[in-house]
Design a protein around this nucleic acid. Structure first.
Lengths: 342, 342
DNA sequence: CTGTTAGCGCCTTCAC
DNA sequence: GTGAAGGCGCTAACAG
């Protein structure tokens, strides 16, 4: 059995509450320097370890944050998690990581579970599209911050990136290179991030009078396989796009597979801009032009924001933080040349 | 305030313990079907959520597992974490993820912290080299499983891969292609994984009478930058290697950067075999020959093993599970040709 | 079948 | 300065 406050108290012939006061280092209560020293010595001698569980129970404060994400093995989320963990640790907290696999049921179970366990706050990259769920969640007075995916119409604390503008800029860039037929390889269509990127894409398409056709938009999901299939369908159209904007961290791998299989060469046969946060993209045969995220910054902002909300629960102001994506022009885009095989 | 057992009891005019028994669905105790129904209805009506914290405190069982890893943003660990999370969730547990950044102090703090929080077990990819620490840890009777990195001389539960054989096989493969001068791009030298790979490398070198020189071994660390520097140092030797075996998931990115910078072409100027678990390697300009890990299997085995140990604490038998790495021959290796520039 | 009692380890209020 | 008492919410042992 582990040693408790009581054990120390018994040995020191003082009351447990005295020991508690000393070990908490609570300076508001005066304790004679002599007993303080004595107690601390005994605590060290017995290698006292506070039972944090009992403490959390008593204080209703677990020093634990829940993180809910769709896929920890995706470099986007693992990068954010890495940053979040660091911040959380520095603040003296622990991190419970919950992986939903983009499964709505699992997400909801996890939220309930975390609340029942008495965590102090949550950071959520949600896979749902249900504003109501989160407006209800707000009423439970457990601080949370949405990350990456959020709801434009709902006043919740969140950290997100400039999805619309970045997509617009990508299309504009391609237009300037002479492309008029630009494909959009979408991820899960109903997510806020993807919807916003699609908006940016469409706005640019229309503003610049580029080919505006439904068949240029393909894909609904984030797996390598879905990326492969969608890319293949786009590139085997009667009138295929000369440039591609891919969305979703894994889709680009599938896209590259399809491109390779069709024996197309980047950037001569096809220009490619990818939303991706993989470290390898600069080192490919044809280094990809990418839109990536400041993952460390996103994690940091989310934690800072959450910590604010935890420390001042009475402050109900909603903070929404937009971070800028990073547009890295590399070799996978070039001036539009008509395909030779037609 | 959240609704408690007491609230339900009061409303139903029964004793709280009765409610507890019913909600636990404990079939060993007989409860009249009538009250059971009544209580359940009231619980639902009040949307009762058990306070898991109180429960954990009472039962000394948190349904939580701690995972200690060096770097969650490394695809090796994020892949394993993904698998672990899934298994843990299915078993009704939560996962606390602790990221050490290969920092020994942080690792030890985390272990203590987790124990004080009363987790039910740990899975650890340690960054330390101290057998004694773990032989002490064993005495604390908290089940744990080492993963990837372990101690050959210490009887602890662990899941690891065939580091030595896989390195041997890689060198043998290169020898069969005519290479006699093979570089070893090492990661952190003191880790068990790296030491074993080095052993396999050296055994093969000696058995096949290949060039056995200290200068062919370089690097000590796992960052991209360290991979870059070490590769550059190897490839700019007076008498550089014609083939390279790289160890460590990120080093290969640095290696590719160096190779590119030196304008060497894979596999003509250099053969490359990499220990890596990145998904992208097959889709590179020159698809890499790799040694990768069955990440899902490793996570699964670790969790299964841990769960066994948790459910049968009296069973002190030590289980050590070796998984097989996957050797994927792709285009980055070819028959040895002398470098033209000499 | 259900109620009573006790206590997990800690912190906090109130005494003295 | 320190002690005493009470209780967070739950479950387990023991009654009846």
């Amino acid at each position: 059995m582990a040693v408790t406050l009581r054990d120390i108290a018994r040995k020191a012939r003082v009351h447990p509450s005295t020991v508690s006061r000393i070990l908490q280092n609570n300076r508001t209560v005066k304790i004679s320097e002599e007993t303080r020293k004595r107690i601390l010595a005994i605590a060290r001698e017995l290698d006292y370890q506070p039972n944090e569980l009992a403490r959390a129970f008593r204080l209703r404060k677990t020093q634990t944050i829940g993180l809910i994400i769709p896929d920890i093995s995706n470099s986007f989320f693992s990068g954010i998690s890495h940053s979040i963990e660091k911040q959380i640790y520095d603040a003296g907290y622990n991190l419970v990581v919950c992986n939903t696999n983009e499964n709505l049921e699992k997400e909801r179970k996890y939220v309930r579970n975390l609340m029942n366990r008495g965590i102090d706050g949550m950071i959520i990259a949600t896979c749902q599209n249900d504003e109501k769920y989160f407006s209800d969640l707000k009423k439970k007075s457990l601080p949370f911050v949405l990350i990456d995916r959020f709801f434009a119409n709902l006043a919740t604390n969140c950290v997100f990136s400039d999805n619309k503008n970045s997509a617009f800029a990508a299309v504009e860039k391609l237009k300037n290179l002479g492309h008029r037929r630009i494909g959009f390889l979408r991820g899960r269509a109903q997510l806020s991030t993807i919807r916003l990127r699609l908006q940016g894409y469409l706005e640019a398409i229309r503003q610049f009078n580029l080919d505006d056709e439904n068949e240029l938009i393909a894909g609904d999901g984030f797996t390598v396989e879905e990326g492969y299939a969608a890319t293949k369908s786009l590139l085997t159209l009667q009138n295929p796009p000369t440039a591609l904007l891919t969305s979703g961290n894994r889709l680009v791998i599938g896209a590259m597979q399809a491109i390779k299989e069709l024996q197309l060469k980047l950037p001569d046969d096809l220009s490619l801009i990818a939303y991706t946060d993989n470290l390898f993209t600069p080192y490919l045969a044809c280094p990809l032009t990418t839109i990536s995220h400041p993952l460390a910054e996103m994690g940091e902002s989310a934690v800072n924001l959450l910590m604010q909300k935890i420390s001042r629960p009475e402050d109900k102001t909603v903070v929404q933080i937009e971070v800028k994506t990073i547009f890295s022009v590399r070799e996978s885009i070039s001036a539009c040349r008509p395909r030779m095989d037609e």
